[in-house]
């Protein structure tokens, strides 16, 4: 029945739904993904980030929160220029990481 209103969708992150296996696969080939401390340097310097939704920091966070689809959204505009690689204080090989994320998470499903 239509009452003129409906249940609001929940924006809550549910870590109980986090897909550990897939993230572990990623961490196995890209152990550096675990090193991110969310400083935001990558996003700040990103060539695409100013014009499109592109942020490696956000992508890693979404993966850790079990929100894989949103994570990929944040990597789509990436042109693999490698500027983030230069600024990452923890020396994460960001280009390599991005490619691995795409490989693992795009191939699944």
């Amino acid at each position: 029945m239509d009452f003129g209103y409906s249940l609001s969708p929940s924006s809550r992150i549910d870590l109980d739904l986090f897909d550990r296996n897939r993230f572990n696969t990623l961490a196995e080939i890209e152990p550096d993904v675990l090193k991110c401390m969310a400083c935001g340097s990558c996003t700040a310097t990103c060539t695409a980030g100013k014009y499109a939704k592109n942020s490696l920091r956000s992508a890693i966070l979404y993966l850790q929160n079990g929100q894989d689809k949103q994570a990929l959204e944040y990597l789509k505009p990436c042109m693999l220029c490698g500027k983030c690689f230069m600024v990452c204080p923890r020396g994460i090989n960001t280009r390599h990481l991005i490619l691995s994320i795409l490989k693992i998470y795009n191939n699944a499903k």
């Binding site: 209103y5 249940l7 609001s8």
Partner: peptide, 10 residues
């Protein structure tokens, strides 16, 4: 307010 009612229901 009716426009908020879905939120109440949720």
């Amino acid at each position: 307010i009716k426009s908020n009612r879905g939120y109440s229901l949720s």
